[in-house]
């Protein structure tokens, strides 16, 4: 991948350490999410009042686009069926299931994300998430995602 010239030598280190620059901080509106794709994984990046958050962009319930959710109290509410997901832990609140929480950090104006492949607490949710992320599963999530509830 290409690193823009404005990024310092430290950025090169970041890149070699598995980090990917996904946006400028000004690309992210406050308390809204935006999706990016890293190695075929869809990741939702959020600008919070006191920092940034990055989680899988696909709701484990019915594959709703989490970047489009309402953000409050360090949780995002999926726009499809109102499942709430903790941005710090990835857990779906009140239901089974979880999404990956990815590392995110800001250097200068740049926002960097490093994918986490740590196993999810809930394995059934992981299976769904893994199946959905690559390719164009968004176009018909219902064909590939059984309702885990």
């Amino acid at each position: 991948m290409t690193i823009p010239q404005t990024i310092s030598a430290a950025a090169t280190d970041l890149a070699s350490d598995g980090w990917v620059r996904v946006a400028s901080i000004d690309d992210l509106p406050l308390l809204e999410g935006r999706r990016t794709t890293i190695d075929g994984h869809r990741v939702a990046v959020f600008k919070l009042v006191d920092g940034l958050a990055a989680i899988d962009a696909v709701c484990p319930h019915k594959a709703g686009p989490l970047q489009d959710g309402l953000v409050a109290d360090n949780c995002v509410t999926c726009p499809l069926h109102d499942r709430r997901i903790d941005l710090a832990t990835g857990q779906v609140i009140g239901y089974e299931g979880a999404v990956h929480v990815h590392e995110v950090s800001q250097h200068g104006d740049d926002v960097w994300v490093r994918l986490s492949h740590a196993p999810l607490a809930d394995t059934s949710a992981e299976a769904d998430a893994e199946r959905l992320v690559p390719g164009d599963a968004m176009s018909d999530p219902h064909s590939s995602v059984p309702d885990t509830l």
Binding site: T6, R21, A23, S24, D26, D27
Partner: peptide, 17 residues
């Protein structure tokens, strides 16, 4: 909203996207 500056012209953010 406060804190959300109007977008400025941004160079390519990453090679792919």
């Amino acid at each position: 909203p406060p804190g959300a500056a109007m977008p400025a012209a941004v160079p390519a953010a990453s090679g792919r996207f």
